[in-house]
Design a protein around this nucleic acid. Structure first.
Lengths: 198, 198, 198, 198
DNA sequence: CCCTAAACGAGACGGTACGTCCGGTCTTAAT
DNA sequence: ATTAAGACCGGACGTACCGTCTCGTTTAGGG
């Protein structure tokens, strides 16, 4: 039995995407953000990565998209799911780890750029949505475990609790009026636990 | 022949600052943000306000400063301090009013622009700091009243509670994954009350 | 009797065109062409002229148009109408002067760029047309004087003679197989005289 | 044990040059020039010829070289040496044939591109030099025959006459202010004859 | 009949220039 | 002196094109 056209027979011709270039771009982006002195510019990213500008625009629609992907790559890996046995302990560990990532000034600028870019570029907003959704899911899983242990009070809504936790993080990150250190993580964990349990 | 000292008698020559122009600029800024289709540009603000560009730069140092002042003017007025007799009621009323302001799409873009601008302009950051500090003070006063009624649990930290509340608001505002409606305000009030009381 | 709108009442507001900038651009263009080492680039013109790129694009549609205007300005002035009493003498003087202008290497590159640009940009073609028309008119006037003296043979067509003369010039200029010096001017004058007279 | 010198013994292995590709490239170049709407681009030539870009660059050093070869192929063949018995007749026939080739708009653009390219690429200039030299030699041969018949006046310089003739052609071709039709050929022949004879 | 080398179509790559857009400053004539 | 209009410098943006560099495929000797 013949297919009318074996499209799969030749799925691709021509040179393939250069993975090294992709990584060089994302790395250069992070480096420039960390170097901090200058504005982040597509030309500068290209020059720092040793890459043509068109290679950037071939794979990312916009500078914001590059930044967004750099964020998604470097911020995701960091935080795993702790298991200390208690909700408060888990939350404290989770937020301590989350805040630790933000000690890198480059990371703070990165997140700022993304939240900024998301306000005007749909592509960036998409990446931000996906990224934050994954982070919320992680925190949600932590709460889910508590729920299974019967630790959550009747009216507690995990979605609200998650937004409280990450809201606290982003609010302090963007406004910068108060630190995101271990003490803050512990205080956050404490109050979130109070909100979640009877 | 007159002395220059006469200046006191006639303290000002030439056309005075046109208050109407100032208002036209801020209004035009909000309108353009609401119209939403295009980027916010100084040229566009000037044209929409029927004002010369120089008139804008005579009174504000940068575009960000204009946006920041527009925010400070239109977002502050709105929310007063409710007094329903219970912490949960007060919080629910406070956040319902706060969220109501954000139903205006222009206001959302405005706050987004400010948070964005604050990441790169110190002047904008200052206005954002001051603005958010005032809002936190308002919420703090509300909690203070509860504390005086003896409604707060021992370990509750008003500063953390305030950041939880406003963090929730800003997080949903910027990420946009969930609504900021009356139900959200009630849920927020409920969880915040749980975190604050025994 | 009222006009419906006195448009002429306010023919212009705002800053006027900066004549110094215009000249700086044209001068810088000629200088860069003479310097010769590098390609002629809008960015380079702007930098050399101490001018923003937008200022160039505000007044000229294209790089070619700038080059074309630079040509029109610097090549026109040079050649006046000689009057030696004889056609051969007039032609020799005219072409000696015309060829002299082309000893400047910058001028040669300039004309080459214009003829090049005219092949693909209508705006450049227009300037080239006007420029060459003016030059042909000058040579035509010279022939006209000879005609009035009765020096032209019956079948001689001034338009053809003019195209022969300028064709010789451009052909050697663009192909570069033979020089454009005084001897060439004299030989050209001689043969043109032979073609024009009995 | 064999020396590398053995390479001479077996000068070639592998696939041979595809002659069809060479012709497709030159044909596509002419076609695109005739189609005229868009700029001539190597990518477009490759696509139109159904050929990979590398195949073009394997056989020609630059785009200009392709264009130059296309010119050399299509413009040379056309014009032979007429023999009408008189100089005027020979010249008229020669230029009528030469001008006829230029009725093809593609040919005009082609020559324009070559003259253009010659201004900046030595390789193209070389081809142009050789091509024009051959054409001049053809016209020179025609004049030589007249000289042998004793038809040329004493002071007539064949090199100048040739440049006058081809200058006329190229000048009208590039500036485009007047046609290159049979009447023009006849007028050119007439004036050139007058310049060459007593 | 297989093996090796070169040519092929496709298309990604580094680099450079283009022409546009915007921020913030300066100039003009009018009020 | 202040205004509306708008030109100015600087510099980032996103696109286009050049000539080079892989890919995997195809073609042709030589063994």
């Amino acid at each position: 039995m013949e297919e009318p056209r074996r499209a799969a027979a030749r799925p691709h011709t021509g040179r393939r995407r250069n993975e090294a270039a992709r990584e060089a771009v994302l790395t250069a982006t992070m480096d420039l953000l960390r170097a901090s002195g200058e504005e982040l510019t597509v030309d500068r990213i290209a020059r720092a990565a040793g890459v043509g500008k068109q290679t950037i625009y071939r794979w990312w629609p916009t500078k914001g998209a590059v930044v967004a992907e750099a964020m998604a790559e470097s911020a995701t890996a960091a935080v795993g799911l702790p298991d200390t046995g208690t909700l408060r302990g888990d939350l404290a560990a989770f937020f301590r780890a989350s805040f630790a990532v933000l000690q890198d000034q480059g990371m703070v600028r990165l997140l700022g750029e993304v939240v900024t870019g998301a306000q005007r570029e749909a592509a960036v907003a998409d990446v931000l949505h996906e990224f934050t959704a994954r982070r919320r899911a992680a925190l949600g899983a932590l709460l889910q475990r508590a729920a299974e242990r019967g630790d959550l009070r009747a009216g507690a809504d995990p979605a609200v609790l998650v937004d409280l936790g990450y809201g606290f993080l982003w609010y302090r990150l963007l406004v910068g009026h108060a630190p995101l250190d271990d003490a803050a993580a512990d205080a956050l964990a404490d109050h979130l636990t109070a909100a979640a349990t009877a």
